[in-house]
């Protein structure tokens, strides 16, 4: 897992004690000391129950994690989200978990991802459902037990020019698509794209005769490289239909990537893909 990983954001990973960092750290310390009572200074999202339970009093850092999603979206049924976390992703120092929340949804949980050093890069992309304009929160915990957080406000409108087709063909249910790079450089992370056909029924809709349609979702996803976990994910009902998940893998040698999805009925879909390291 040696350095030189390709990154979208260059954040000088080597410069551990740069002048800028010292200044920022000092400022943050001053602010925190000045605030005296930490909870009083907390943002509203930090007081949301599910987040409070996770943080358990910890103060999340805001600089090493980036949550990207559009400030305004015309279609709340499928909003692209990307999270990227700066981390060496070594055995000693890596991001262990990532949580995504949409605070204005009927239930805030979106996604929970577990990374390993084999991920090479703690970053994911997916598509989520947003019920209304609201705040989306990404929370991550490192192997040191530190918490990282990033927050975005999103305005959701329903465009007059968009009409939504809410029916899904059943013949390709649980059909998967995977895109793995044709070759990897040893230890370098590269992105893997996955998708599974699934309506992700929220349990909040009713059918034509007004009967509630029961919740039916793909609840988990796992990626293993020759048996070793790369990422595992817990999906909630506000992941958009036909769940899309982009993650990273940094293989040391050629092998077989095994991907599996599990529906809440227990049904599974599985697919393997060759990973070639030059």
């Amino acid at each position: 897992m040696t350095g030189n990983r390709s990154r979208r954001r260059d954040r000088v990973p080597g410069a551990r004690l740069s002048f800028g960092r010292v200044v920022v750290a000092t400022m943050v310390s001053v602010l925190l000391l000045g605030a005296g009572n930490a909870t009083a200074a907390r943002a509203p999202w930090e007081r949301v129950e599910v987040i409070q339970e996770l943080l358990n009093g910890a103060e999340p850092q805001r600089d090493a994690i980036q949550l990207d999603l559009p400030a305004v979206t015309q279609d709340g049924s499928s909003v692209a989200v990307t999270v990227d976390i700066e981390s060496p992703m070594t055995q000693d120092d890596h991001v262990e978990r990532l949580y995504l929340f949409a605070l204005g949804n009927p239930s805030p949980e979106l996604l929970e991802v577990r990374f390993t050093p084999l991920s090479g890069r703690a970053g994911i992309s997916t598509r989520i459902r947003l019920d209304s304009s609201q705040t989306v929160v990404a929370l991550a915990r490192t192997s040191d037990g530190d918490w990282l957080a990033d927050v975005r406000d999103v305005r959701v409108t329903v465009s007059g020019c968009l009409s939504r087709d809410d029916t899904y063909a059943s013949e390709d249910l649980m059909q998967t698509r995977v895109r793995v790079p044709p070759n990897f450089e040893r230890g370098e992370s590269a992105e893997v794209r996955t998708l599974i056909q699934h309506p992700m029924e929220t349990g909040l809709r009713t059918d034509a005769s007004d009967r509630p349609i029961p919740e039916n979702i793909v609840r988990s996803f796992e990626a293993h490289l020759d048996g070793a976990p790369v990422v595992t994910a817990r999906l909630h009902r506000a992941i958009a239909a036909n769940p899309f998940l982009l993650f990273h893998v940094a293989p040391e040698r050629s092998g077989e990537l095994s991907l599996s999805w599990e529906e809440d009925t227990g049904d599974k879909a599985q697919v393997t893909a060759a990973v070639r390291v030059d």
Binding site: D75, S78, C161, L162, S163, R164, D165
Partner: peptide
């Protein structure tokens, strides 16, 4: 790049 579009039906 979308799953739904204007006046789709």
């Amino acid at each position: 790049s979308k799953d739904a579009f204007s006046k789709q039906d």
